[in-house]
Design a protein around this nucleic acid. Structure first.
Lengths: 120, 120
DNA sequence: TATCTATGTTGACATATGTCGAACCAACCG
DNA sequence: CGGTTGGTTCGACATATGTCAACATAGATA
C-alpha cells in the first residue's frame, strides 16, 4: 500500500486558546472555551484538589493522597473528573491506584492570559 | 475626649492571596477566597465583559461601550456586579455614565498563582 | 418641575451545580 | 473462587446561578 496517508493526529487537548485578556474583547467562542477552564478552578474543593496534585512530588498524586478535603469520596471523584474535562488534569491507572497529574501547557496558557494582561 | 483612637482603615480590597498553586496544598480558607476570583471569570459573558474592559483604551470602559454581549442590560449589570464583588473590577460614576476599570494588582496575583505553578 | 437616558435592583423562573448514599467496577489477595 | 480495598458512576436532592421583564434610581436637560 503505497498511498497510505499519515493523518495528523487529532489533538484531544484543549487549545492554549485566546489572546491576553486585554488585547481585544474575546469572541463568544473564545470566551466559551476559556470560561470552562476558569470555572474548573472556581470551586474551593477543586482548587484544593488541583493544588494538592500540583504541589505533590513528581507533579502527580494518587487519589488516596489528596482525598482529605472534607467531602465524600464520590464528590472528590466528581471534582477530579471536572478538572480533567476542563483539560487541567490527566489521569492514569497504575495497578490499584489512579494517578492524576497537572497538564502543564494549559496551566501556562491560563497564566499568560492573565499576566500579559496585568503587565499593561 | 483624649483617648479617641484612630482606627486603621478597613481595606475593601481582596487580598493578593495565597502561594502558587504548586507550592503546597491550599487551605480551605485560601481556596475559598481564591475560588471566588476564578469563578468570576468562569462565565463566558463575564469573561467577555472583563476582556472588553481590559482591552479598552485607558483600561476603563463605560457600560454603554461593552454591553454588546448578547444578553439583556440587567444581565450585563448583574455580571459586572459579580466581577466587582470578586475584586476584579472597580466602578465609578462620572456624570451620566458608569465606568468600570480593571483592578491591576488582583489580576497580577491571579497570574502569578498560575505562571509560577506552570514554571516548575 | 417634568422628562429622558443610562444603570442598577427586584422577583420569578429554568437550569446548572455540589453533595451524598448506594450500587458498581477494577485490581489485588486469601 | 470470594472478600477487601480503591475509585467511579448513578440517582436523588437542595442550593446556586444565569436570565429576563418590570420597576427603581441617578443625573442631565428642558
Amino acid at each position: 500500500m503505497s498511498n497510505v496517508k499519515v493523518l495528523p493526529v487529532l489533538e484531544p487537548e484543549i487549545e492554549p486558546c485566546c489572546p491576553p485578556l486585554n488585547e481585544r474583547p474575546l469572541t463568544a467562542e473564545e470566551a466559551e472555551r476559556t470560561a470552562v477552564m476558569f470555572k474548573a478552578l472556581g470551586d474551593p474543593v477543586r482548587l484544593r484538589l488541583f493544588s494538592s496534585v500540583a504541589s505533590h512530588e513528581g507533579g502527580e498524586a494518587c487519589v488516596c493522597d489528596i482525598s482529605d478535603v472534607g467531602v465524600s469520596q464520590p464528590t472528590v471523584s466528581h471534582h477530579l473528573k471536572k478538572l480533567k474535562e476542563a483539560g487541567l488534569l490527566s489521569s492514569e491507572r497504575r495497578g490499584t491506584w489512579v494517578y492524576y497529574r497537572v497538564e502543564p501547557t494549559v496551566l501556562a496558557a491560563m497564566g499568560a492570559l492573565l499576566t500579559k494582561a496585568a503587565s499593561t
